[in-house]
Protein backbone atom coordinates (compact mmCIF):
# COMPACT_ATOMS: atom_id res chain seq x y z
CA UNK A 1 0.00 0.00 0.00
CA UNK A 2 2.88 2.36 0.82
CA UNK A 3 3.95 1.93 -2.77
CA UNK A 4 0.65 3.36 -3.97
CA UNK A 5 1.12 6.35 -1.67
CA UNK A 6 4.61 6.84 -3.07
CA UNK A 7 3.09 6.74 -6.55
CA UNK A 8 0.47 9.30 -5.62
CA UNK A 9 3.09 11.53 -4.06
CA UNK A 10 5.20 11.24 -7.21
CA UNK A 11 2.20 12.17 -9.33
CA UNK A 12 1.61 15.27 -7.24
CA UNK A 13 5.29 16.22 -7.28
CA UNK A 14 5.62 15.49 -10.99
CA UNK A 15 2.54 17.45 -11.94
CA UNK A 16 3.33 20.43 -9.78
CA UNK A 17 6.88 20.33 -11.10
CA UNK A 18 5.69 20.38 -14.68
CA UNK A 19 3.09 23.05 -13.90
CA UNK A 20 5.79 25.09 -12.18
CA UNK A 21 8.02 24.77 -15.22
CA UNK A 22 5.35 25.98 -17.64
CA UNK A 23 4.16 28.76 -15.35
CA UNK A 24 7.62 29.88 -14.25
CA UNK A 25 9.23 29.86 -17.68
CA UNK A 26 6.37 31.91 -19.06
CA UNK A 27 6.64 34.37 -16.21
CA UNK A 28 10.37 34.63 -16.78
CA UNK A 29 9.85 35.31 -20.46
CA UNK A 30 7.36 38.05 -19.66
CA UNK A 31 9.87 39.61 -17.25
CA UNK A 32 12.72 39.57 -19.75
CA UNK A 33 10.63 40.94 -22.58
CA UNK A 34 7.89 42.97 -20.87
CA UNK A 35 4.99 43.80 -23.17
CA UNK A 36 4.51 47.15 -21.46
CA UNK A 37 7.66 49.14 -22.09
CA UNK A 38 8.40 52.87 -22.01
CA UNK A 39 8.22 53.42 -25.74
CA UNK A 40 6.06 51.52 -28.23
CA UNK A 41 9.03 50.49 -30.37
CA UNK A 42 10.60 48.55 -27.47
CA UNK A 43 7.24 47.11 -26.50
CA UNK A 44 6.47 45.74 -29.95
CA UNK A 45 10.00 44.40 -30.29
CA UNK A 46 9.61 42.66 -26.93
CA UNK A 47 6.28 41.15 -27.90
CA UNK A 48 7.72 39.86 -31.17
CA UNK A 49 10.72 38.32 -29.40
CA UNK A 50 8.58 36.69 -26.74
CA UNK A 51 6.29 35.27 -29.43
CA UNK A 52 9.36 33.78 -31.10
CA UNK A 53 10.52 32.00 -27.94
CA UNK A 54 7.26 31.04 -26.26
CA UNK A 55 6.28 28.15 -28.58
CA UNK A 56 9.54 26.42 -27.72
CA UNK A 57 8.84 26.77 -23.99
CA UNK A 58 5.48 25.06 -24.55
CA UNK A 59 7.03 22.39 -26.76
CA UNK A 60 10.21 21.91 -24.75
CA UNK A 61 9.34 18.93 -22.53
CA UNK A 62 7.53 17.15 -25.36
CA UNK A 63 10.45 17.56 -27.75
CA UNK A 64 12.85 16.36 -25.08
CA UNK A 65 10.78 13.24 -24.34
CA UNK A 66 10.11 12.44 -27.99
CA UNK A 67 13.77 12.79 -28.86
CA UNK A 68 14.99 10.66 -26.00
CA UNK A 69 12.34 7.93 -26.24
CA UNK A 70 11.65 7.67 -29.97
CA UNK A 71 14.09 9.55 -32.20
CA UNK A 72 17.36 8.71 -30.51
CA UNK A 73 16.52 4.98 -30.24
CA UNK A 74 16.03 4.73 -34.01
CA UNK A 75 19.55 6.06 -34.58
CA UNK A 76 21.02 4.07 -31.71
CA UNK A 77 19.41 0.87 -32.98
CA UNK A 78 20.98 1.42 -36.40
CA UNK A 79 24.34 1.89 -34.71
CA UNK A 80 23.87 -1.13 -32.45
CA UNK A 81 22.86 -3.34 -35.36
CA UNK A 82 26.39 -2.85 -36.74
CA UNK A 83 27.96 -4.00 -33.48
CA UNK A 84 28.40 -7.28 -31.62
CA UNK A 85 26.39 -8.68 -28.72
CA UNK A 86 27.85 -6.32 -26.15
CA UNK A 87 27.30 -3.33 -28.43
CA UNK A 88 30.96 -2.33 -28.31
CA UNK A 89 32.84 -3.94 -31.18
CA UNK A 90 32.05 -2.94 -34.74
CA UNK A 91 31.12 -5.93 -36.88
CA UNK A 92 29.89 -4.28 -40.06
CA UNK A 93 26.99 -6.05 -41.71
CA UNK A 94 27.64 -9.37 -39.98
CA UNK A 95 24.36 -9.19 -38.03
CA UNK A 96 22.39 -8.68 -41.21
CA UNK A 97 24.23 -11.52 -42.94
CA UNK A 98 23.49 -13.74 -39.95
CA UNK A 99 19.86 -12.64 -39.99
CA UNK A 100 19.16 -13.69 -43.56
CA UNK A 101 20.77 -17.06 -43.01
CA UNK A 102 18.92 -17.71 -39.76
CA UNK A 103 16.10 -20.26 -39.87
CA UNK A 104 14.30 -18.63 -36.94
CA UNK A 105 14.26 -15.29 -38.73
CA UNK A 106 12.97 -16.79 -41.97
CA UNK A 107 10.24 -18.57 -40.05
CA UNK A 108 9.31 -15.31 -38.29
CA UNK A 109 9.23 -13.36 -41.54
CA UNK A 110 7.05 -15.99 -43.16
CA UNK A 111 4.66 -16.01 -40.21
CA UNK A 112 4.60 -12.21 -40.01
CA UNK A 113 3.61 -12.03 -43.66
CA UNK A 114 0.83 -14.52 -43.02
CA UNK A 115 -0.35 -12.33 -40.13
CA UNK A 116 -0.15 -9.23 -42.33
CA UNK A 117 -2.17 -10.91 -45.05
CA UNK A 118 -4.88 -12.33 -42.82
CA UNK A 119 -5.44 -10.15 -39.74
CA UNK A 120 -5.98 -6.67 -41.26
CA UNK A 121 -8.14 -8.12 -44.05
CA UNK A 122 -10.25 -10.27 -41.76
CA UNK A 123 -10.67 -7.59 -39.07
CA UNK A 124 -11.60 -4.88 -41.56
CA UNK A 125 -14.01 -7.13 -43.43
CA UNK A 126 -15.73 -8.41 -40.29
CA UNK A 127 -15.77 -4.89 -38.87
CA UNK A 128 -17.44 -3.61 -42.03
CA UNK A 129 -20.09 -6.33 -41.86
CA UNK A 130 -20.70 -5.67 -38.17
CA UNK A 131 -20.95 -1.92 -38.78
CA UNK A 132 -23.42 -2.33 -41.63
CA UNK A 133 -25.59 -4.76 -39.66
CA UNK A 134 -25.63 -2.95 -36.32
CA UNK A 135 -26.43 0.38 -37.97
CA UNK A 136 -29.73 -1.04 -39.13
CA UNK A 137 -31.22 -2.17 -35.83
CA UNK A 138 -32.58 -0.50 -32.74
CA UNK A 139 -30.28 -2.27 -30.27
CA UNK A 140 -27.28 -1.62 -32.52
CA UNK A 141 -25.40 0.41 -29.93
CA UNK A 142 -25.59 -2.36 -27.35
CA UNK A 143 -24.39 -4.87 -29.94
CA UNK A 144 -21.54 -2.51 -30.86
CA UNK A 145 -20.42 -2.22 -27.24
CA UNK A 146 -20.31 -5.97 -26.84
CA UNK A 147 -18.36 -6.55 -30.06
CA UNK A 148 -16.03 -3.66 -29.20
CA UNK A 149 -15.37 -4.88 -25.64
CA UNK A 150 -12.43 -7.23 -26.39
CA UNK A 151 -10.43 -4.12 -27.26
CA UNK A 152 -10.20 -3.34 -23.54
CA UNK A 153 -8.71 -6.76 -22.78
CA UNK A 154 -4.94 -7.19 -22.72
CA UNK A 155 -3.35 -9.55 -25.22
CA UNK A 156 -2.28 -11.74 -22.31
CA UNK A 157 -5.80 -11.79 -20.88
CA UNK A 158 -7.09 -12.66 -24.33
CA UNK A 159 -4.57 -15.48 -24.53
CA UNK A 160 -5.94 -16.99 -21.31
CA UNK A 161 -9.50 -16.57 -22.56
CA UNK A 162 -8.66 -18.37 -25.78
CA UNK A 163 -6.75 -21.08 -23.98
CA UNK A 164 -10.16 -22.16 -22.71
CA UNK A 165 -11.37 -22.29 -26.30
CA UNK A 166 -8.41 -24.17 -27.79
CA UNK A 167 -7.71 -26.61 -24.97
CA UNK A 168 -6.99 -30.15 -26.08
CA UNK A 169 -7.63 -33.42 -24.24
CA UNK A 170 -6.70 -36.82 -25.63
CA UNK A 171 -9.30 -38.48 -27.77
CA UNK A 172 -11.93 -40.27 -25.70
CA UNK A 173 -11.73 -38.12 -22.59
CA UNK A 174 -14.14 -35.26 -22.11
CA UNK A 175 -13.06 -32.09 -23.93
CA UNK A 176 -13.12 -28.92 -21.87
CA UNK A 177 -12.02 -26.65 -24.73
CA UNK A 178 -14.99 -25.22 -26.60
CA UNK A 179 -13.59 -25.78 -30.08
CA UNK A 180 -12.69 -29.42 -29.53
CA UNK A 181 -16.01 -30.05 -27.80
CA UNK A 182 -17.80 -28.77 -30.91
CA UNK A 183 -15.58 -30.84 -33.20
CA UNK A 184 -16.23 -33.98 -31.14
CA UNK A 185 -19.96 -33.28 -30.98
CA UNK A 186 -19.98 -33.08 -34.78
CA UNK A 187 -18.26 -36.46 -34.94
CA UNK A 188 -14.68 -35.31 -35.58
CA UNK A 189 -11.49 -36.07 -33.72
CA UNK A 190 -10.03 -33.51 -31.31
CA UNK A 191 -6.90 -31.63 -32.38
CA UNK A 192 -4.13 -29.85 -30.50
CA UNK A 193 -4.83 -26.61 -32.35
CA UNK A 194 -2.01 -24.59 -30.87
CA UNK A 195 0.65 -27.25 -31.39
CA UNK A 196 -0.04 -27.99 -35.05
CA UNK A 197 2.63 -26.23 -37.13
CA UNK A 198 1.48 -23.80 -39.79
CA UNK A 199 -2.21 -24.00 -38.92
CA UNK A 200 -1.58 -22.84 -35.36
CA UNK A 201 -0.68 -19.43 -36.82
CA UNK A 202 -4.27 -19.02 -37.86
CA UNK A 203 -5.57 -19.93 -34.43
CA UNK A 204 -3.32 -17.29 -32.89
CA UNK A 205 -4.44 -14.78 -35.52
CA UNK A 206 -8.06 -15.42 -34.60
CA UNK A 207 -7.33 -13.89 -31.19
CA UNK A 208 -6.09 -10.64 -32.71
CA UNK A 209 -8.97 -10.55 -35.19
CA UNK A 210 -11.33 -10.99 -32.25
CA UNK A 211 -9.75 -7.94 -30.58
CA UNK A 212 -9.44 -5.70 -33.64
CA UNK A 213 -12.83 -6.24 -35.28
CA UNK A 214 -14.54 -3.92 -32.80
CA UNK A 215 -12.07 -1.15 -33.58
CA UNK A 216 -12.70 -1.50 -37.31
CA UNK A 217 -16.45 -1.62 -36.72
CA UNK A 218 -16.58 1.59 -34.69
CA UNK A 219 -14.65 3.63 -37.22
CA UNK A 220 -16.30 2.19 -40.30
CA UNK A 221 -19.73 2.67 -38.77
CA UNK A 222 -19.04 6.39 -38.35
CA UNK A 223 -17.82 6.56 -41.95
CA UNK A 224 -20.93 4.74 -43.22
CA UNK A 225 -23.15 7.23 -41.41
CA UNK A 226 -21.27 10.08 -43.05
CA UNK A 227 -22.28 8.94 -46.53
CA UNK A 228 -24.65 11.48 -48.15
CA UNK A 229 -28.22 10.13 -48.13
CA UNK A 230 -28.83 11.30 -51.68
CA UNK A 231 -26.43 8.80 -53.22
CA UNK A 232 -28.29 5.95 -51.54
CA UNK A 233 -31.73 7.31 -52.32
CA UNK A 234 -30.78 7.65 -55.97
CA UNK A 235 -29.67 4.03 -56.03
CA UNK A 236 -32.90 2.91 -54.36
CA UNK A 237 -34.91 4.78 -56.98
CA UNK A 238 -32.89 3.08 -59.70
CA UNK A 239 -33.96 -0.26 -58.24
CA UNK A 240 -30.64 -1.43 -56.77
CA UNK A 241 -30.80 -4.29 -54.26
CA UNK A 242 -29.56 -3.98 -50.68
CA UNK A 243 -26.31 -5.82 -51.40
CA UNK A 244 -25.69 -3.80 -54.55
CA UNK A 245 -26.20 -0.56 -52.65
CA UNK A 246 -23.79 -1.71 -49.96
CA UNK A 247 -20.95 -2.91 -52.16
CA UNK A 248 -21.31 -0.60 -55.15
CA UNK A 249 -22.52 2.66 -53.63
CA UNK A 250 -21.51 2.72 -49.96
CA UNK A 251 -18.18 0.86 -49.78
CA UNK A 252 -16.52 2.85 -52.61
CA UNK A 253 -17.36 6.08 -50.76
CA UNK A 254 -15.49 5.00 -47.62
CA UNK A 255 -12.32 3.61 -49.23
CA UNK A 256 -10.28 6.30 -47.48
CA UNK A 257 -11.45 5.21 -44.05
CA UNK A 258 -11.04 1.53 -44.90
CA UNK A 259 -7.42 2.26 -45.81
CA UNK A 260 -6.84 4.03 -42.50
CA UNK A 261 -8.32 1.12 -40.53
CA UNK A 262 -6.30 -1.36 -42.57
CA UNK A 263 -2.99 0.41 -41.99
CA UNK A 264 -3.66 0.96 -38.28
CA UNK A 265 -4.29 -2.76 -37.79
CA UNK A 266 -1.25 -3.56 -39.93
CA UNK A 267 0.94 -1.65 -37.50
CA UNK A 268 -0.60 -3.46 -34.53
CA UNK A 269 0.13 -6.77 -36.27
CA UNK A 270 3.79 -5.88 -36.80
CA UNK A 271 4.18 -5.20 -33.09
CA UNK A 272 2.28 -8.26 -31.90
CA UNK A 273 4.26 -9.99 -29.24
CA UNK A 274 2.21 -10.78 -26.14
CA UNK A 275 -0.17 -13.21 -27.84
CA UNK A 276 2.61 -15.37 -29.21
CA UNK A 277 4.63 -15.19 -25.99
CA UNK A 278 1.67 -16.25 -23.88
CA UNK A 279 0.22 -18.94 -26.17
CA UNK A 280 3.24 -20.72 -27.67
CA UNK A 281 6.35 -18.62 -27.03
CA UNK A 282 7.31 -19.32 -30.63
CA UNK A 283 7.17 -23.08 -30.33
CA UNK A 284 5.64 -25.25 -33.05
CA UNK A 285 6.78 -22.86 -35.83
CA UNK A 286 4.68 -19.94 -34.63
CA UNK A 287 7.50 -17.44 -34.04
CA UNK A 288 7.01 -13.80 -35.09
CA UNK A 289 9.50 -10.94 -35.40
CA UNK A 290 8.62 -9.05 -32.22
CA UNK A 291 8.88 -12.16 -30.05
CA UNK A 292 12.08 -13.24 -31.81
CA UNK A 293 13.55 -9.86 -30.96
CA UNK A 294 12.54 -10.20 -27.32
CA UNK A 295 14.18 -13.63 -27.33
CA UNK A 296 17.48 -12.22 -28.55
CA UNK A 297 17.33 -9.31 -26.15
CA UNK A 298 17.11 -11.33 -22.98
CA UNK A 299 17.28 -15.05 -23.38
CA UNK A 300 20.45 -16.75 -24.49
CA UNK A 301 22.55 -14.22 -22.61
CA UNK A 302 21.15 -11.21 -24.43
CA UNK A 303 22.56 -10.19 -27.80
CA UNK A 304 21.91 -6.47 -28.26
CA UNK A 305 23.41 -6.39 -31.75
CA UNK A 306 21.13 -9.06 -33.17
CA UNK A 307 18.12 -7.77 -31.22
CA UNK A 308 18.64 -4.29 -32.66
CA UNK A 309 18.98 -5.76 -36.15
CA UNK A 310 15.56 -7.40 -35.84
CA UNK A 311 14.14 -4.11 -34.52
CA UNK A 312 15.48 -2.37 -37.62
CA UNK A 313 13.70 -4.92 -39.82
CA UNK A 314 10.40 -4.23 -38.01
CA UNK A 315 11.02 -0.51 -38.43
CA UNK A 316 11.67 -0.91 -42.17
CA UNK A 317 8.35 -2.71 -42.56
CA UNK A 318 6.59 0.22 -40.87
CA UNK A 319 8.26 2.98 -42.92
CA UNK A 320 5.95 2.82 -45.97
CA UNK A 321 2.90 3.28 -43.72
CA UNK A 322 4.63 6.12 -41.93
CA UNK A 323 5.32 7.96 -45.19
CA UNK A 324 1.76 7.40 -46.35
CA UNK A 325 0.38 8.75 -43.05
CA UNK A 326 2.52 11.87 -43.16
CA UNK A 327 1.49 12.60 -46.74
CA UNK A 328 -2.17 12.19 -45.79
CA UNK A 329 -1.83 14.46 -42.77
CA UNK A 330 -0.17 17.18 -44.83
CA UNK A 331 -2.85 16.97 -47.51
CA UNK A 332 -5.49 17.27 -44.84
CA UNK A 333 -3.87 20.31 -43.25
CA UNK A 334 -3.62 22.10 -46.59
CA UNK A 335 -7.33 21.48 -47.00
CA UNK A 336 -8.10 23.38 -43.80
Amino acid sequence: MSQLWAALATIVIGISGAALYFWGSNLLLDRIYPARAADTATASRNIARAALIRPWLFLGPAILALTLYLVYPVIASLWLSLHDRSGENFVGLANYRWLFGDAGFRESMFNNFLWLLVVPAASTFLGLIAAALTDKIAWGNLAKSLIFMPMAISFVGAAVIWKFVYDYRAEGSEQIGLLNAIVVALGGTPEAWIATPFWNNFFLMAILVWIQTGFAMVILSAALRGIPEETIEAAVLDGASGLQIFFKIMVPQIWGTIAVVWTTITITVLKVFDIVLAMTNGQWNSQVLANLMFDWMFRGGGDFGRGATIAIVIMLLVVPIMVWNIRNARKEMEGR
Partner: peptide, 21 residues
Amino acid sequence: IAAVVGLLVVPLQMSLIPLLK
Protein backbone atom coordinates in the same frame (compact mmCIF):
# COMPACT_ATOMS: atom_id res chain seq x y z
CA ILE B 1 3.40 18.19 -36.88
CA ALA B 2 4.63 15.90 -39.63
CA ALA B 3 7.26 14.55 -37.26
CA VAL B 4 4.62 13.76 -34.64
CA VAL B 5 2.52 11.93 -37.24
CA GLY B 6 5.60 9.97 -38.26
CA LEU B 7 6.50 9.07 -34.70
CA LEU B 8 2.96 7.73 -34.16
CA VAL B 9 3.91 4.48 -35.85
CA VAL B 10 7.50 4.00 -34.70
CA PRO B 11 7.51 0.52 -33.22
CA LEU B 12 8.16 0.43 -29.53
CA GLN B 13 10.54 -2.48 -30.04
CA MET B 14 12.95 -0.05 -31.60
CA SER B 15 13.37 1.87 -28.35
CA LEU B 16 13.85 -1.00 -25.94
CA ILE B 17 17.53 -1.82 -26.34
CA PRO B 18 18.92 1.75 -26.59
CA LEU B 19 16.80 2.89 -23.65
CA LEU B 20 17.77 -0.11 -21.57
CA LYS B 21 21.41 0.81 -22.17
